Amino acid sequence: MNHSPARDNRQPSAAVVRQAIEWMLRLNNQAASARVIQRCEQWRRAHPDHECAWQRVLSLNVDLKHRFQALPSGGVAFEALENSAQRMGRRQAMKLLTGLLVAGSSAWVARDVTPWQQWTADFATQIGRHSSFQLADGSRLQLNTDSAVNQDFSATRRLIQLTKGEILVTCAVGAQHPAPSPLLVSCQHGVLEGQSGRFVVRQESDHTRVSVIEGRVLLRSPGASSITVQAGESYSLTAQRADALPHPDMEPGAWADGLIVTRDMRLGDFLAEVSRYRRGHLACDQDIAGLRLSGVFRLEDTDKLLAVLPQTLPVRLQYRTPWWVTLQRNA
């Protein structure tokens, strides 16, 4: 199957890039079967972003090989690295290949596979981790999985810039700031102003979701008038508008306690949420995506979390690898 390299302005997600790297590692294995080759081709045809990611990762791999071969004994060094990757476990091999691709000086891989925000941010977390920080004014900042934040505090301004992911902010007022400036949180789609209370900010590619747990928050976006969000309310914020959201099927901020708390949540949506806390592919067949579940699930071990699902739903887990998990209907 021949494809010309993608030359448009597509920017595949980090998850799609990692999938492309996984397929490359499988095909580079000398034991790769005709079935693996066929499945890789099916994956590439499934979505334009898949083919785009494949071509770019492939071109980076070729470019890197040429760079090695330009050095004395470079070809031997690259072959040794490839052979080492084949002998390694999949996680270690992905780490090695990703590191090599980043070393190839391609900005899009540096951004999407190993996000530059996490290298330069004041606060950051990796996939599956969450952290808590005390800010200079006494406010508390908690970062969810795969998130990055910068701060800009001075005598006249308190600003938190969310560059990626999700945060839980607990505003501090009182002795440290007798007449405090508002605590500002900027995101891709606007600015939030918190005077008191606790609120969650989750930045997606096309919108930012704001959920107020305590107190109130003022929302401002370039295309919408200011809106005050009260405790118990959630809003979706874009550059053009701010829309109230119905009562969520997942408790906002429960992740700060290491939990996912659901209320009549679709299985497909639940798995999409769990996938944020683990690497690899996690999905379910479409005929069970609409099954509903409610409960409290611990995030510290997502494999144990997934093992609970067949106890409450008519599903079974299929592990093709530790990083490729599918839920199917239990026959």
Rank of each mutant, 00 (worst) to 15 (best):
R276A: 07
T170I: 12
S196F: 10
A6L: 03
A107C: 00
A283M: 02
A256E: 02
Q19H: 08
V274Q: 01
A242K: 06
G280K: 02
M250Q: 09
G89A: 03
G268P: 04
S221I: 05
I227F: 05
R316G: 03
Y319H: 10
Q151E: 08
P322I: 07
L101F: 11
L135S: 03
A224S: 15
D243G: 01
T98Q: 08
T312Q: 09
Q240N: 12
R279H: 11
S132K: 15
D137G: 10
G268R: 00
F199T: 12
R220H: 14
R279E: 12
T98G: 15
A124G: 07
L141K: 09
A14G: 15
H66G: 02
S33N: 03
V200L: 13
V325K: 03
N61G: 01
L25K: 06
C171Q: 11
Q151N: 07
F297I: 05
R316L: 03
I213R: 12
R220K: 13
S59Y: 00
S225E: 11
E82C: 10
D303M: 03
P314K: 05
S106M: 02
D137A: 09
A272E: 14
R91E: 10
A231F: 05
W23F: 11
P178E: 07
L101Y: 06
A175L: 15
E82N: 11
L159F: 05
L168D: 15
P48W: 07
S132H: 14
